[in-house]
Amino acid sequence: MRVLALIASDGNRLPRGDRAAAALALAVGEGSATALHLPDDLEAAVYARAAGLATAPWAGRLAAFDALLAGPGAVDRLGDVAVGGLAEEACGSLAFDVLSATRSTDGWLVEADAGRGARVEIAVTGPLVAVLSNDAPRPPYVSHWRRRAARIHDRGRSDAAVPHGDGAAAWGPIVARPPRQASETATAESRTNAAFGIAESPSLDSAVVTGTAAECARILLRYLIDQGFVASAATMEATAESTAADTNPLAARSAAAPAAARAVGASPGELTAAQARAPRTSGDTPSRRGRRPRPLVPASAERQ
């Protein structure tokens, strides 16, 4: 299993959510987790090494992963759009304000902070991109002696093999990130929507995603499918195939997904179970509207 932690310090210290992301990656990664840090962020690299993680500098793109656990410090530096893009790229699920994540038989069980003291538990299949909350349980303390050892003994040591896919699209902050306060006060849902470019978030005006026309169309279609506005797999497949000739590697990757599903005998409908959900409307019951982010499994598996 490939588990990645994306962490960053604020110059002096690692926010608690980033430390929690590293600890969670270590716990669920079965000894093979890797921490990604910004190239100039020695503090984060040293912390991750002292915590027992392999490290690699963040270069903006990734090969396939099972879980990417991002800290709020890293998301502050890169912007919400970066994690949104990574989730998009991996055909994975994105969750903000995550408190904990555990492996389930077919994916992940994610506990997220729904605000005002409420918590939601979300069952996720497929890759997970989780942005840890600063209210996540306090991770085990990583002593400065261990950090000192990491600093002294790892000086000049080359980083772990970088888990970057050659063919993956590069994602990164395109414009200056929104102020930390704004991203912290927004709900997880609006941040998710903003990351996908679909909400009237104040930061949306400044968060412009650049890409080829095919890529933008694919993102739009994926959103429409996900929300149930467009009939599911066939359209997806058609879109993927229509863009297959495009040299954009991201599009090629999307095209491969349904094909892979067919190869293992799964129906497109099973592959995109979440896509079959009805869209939420303003007339929904409060409890239905209160589910956020929306679970990507049938409603029966959802636990409130």
């Binding site: 002096n12 210290r13 306090r138 303390y141 002593s143």
Partner: peptide, 21 residues
Amino acid sequence: RVETGAAPAAAEDAFESIAAE
């Protein structure tokens, strides 16, 4: 305790303050 990550929360906060501030 500290080396095994089991420092109490108040101590940990003080450590972080000393290291950062």
